[in-house]
């Protein structure tokens, strides 16, 4: 597909909007359907579309393996870190009320960071699995 002009142009046009939609799903998840899991998958789908049209090597150049692997663990650590932050501030593990002077604001803050952790891990895992599968047939072994 690397020489198909229509696909290349359309994919390039769609990518920013896909990313924007992923961010919308992520941050509007408090008010409408959506959340970290869905947003992570949509963001990963954008990179996979890029890899399908422009080739895996280009995608690996834009989003290298070490970054994806860091995302994999970083999301879980971010989630657990929110829990530890609650612990440090005198609450229970994953207690969001203590994250802000106003308990409702604290809940907002906790949910925001937890959802961010979910999104980072999910998109990292999806991308890593895709990289692994797509890279297997062609890597010189």
């Amino acid at each position: 597909m690397r020489h198909d002009l229509v696909l290349r142009v359309i994919a390039k046009l769609m990518m920013p909007f896909t990313l924007l939609f992923a961010l919308y799903v992520q941050f509007h998840g408090d008010f409408g359907p959506g959340g970290g899991f869905q947003a992570g998958v949509i963001a990963a789908a954008m990179v996979i579309l890029y890899a399908l049209i422009y080739g895996l090597d280009q995608a690996r150049k834009a989003l290298p393996d070490w970054l994806v692997e860091t995302m994999l663990a970083g999301g879980v650590l971010l989630y657990a870190g929110v829990g530890m932050a609650g612990l440090m501030l005198g609450g229970n593990f994953l207690d969001y009320f203590v994250l802000h002077a106003d308990p409702v604001q604290g809940q907002h803050r906790g949910i925001f960071w937890v959802e961010a952790g979910v999104a980072v891990t999910v998109s990292g895992v999806m991308l890593k699995i895709f990289y692994m599968f797509a890279g297997r047939g062609r890597d010189p072994e």
Binding site: F31, P33, G35, L72, G75, V76, Y79, V122
Partner: peptide, 29 residues
């Protein structure tokens, strides 16, 4: 203060479960 009840339950009331789920996803990767 979050109107989407699904998000409330997922991230706040059932935060432990979701932490476990994220760990499962991480383990899969």
């Amino acid at each position: 203060g979050v109107p989407n009840v699904v998000t409330d339950v997922l991230a706040s009331y059932r935060g432990f479960d979701t932490l476990g789920e994220v760990t499962v996803v991480f383990t899969a990767g």
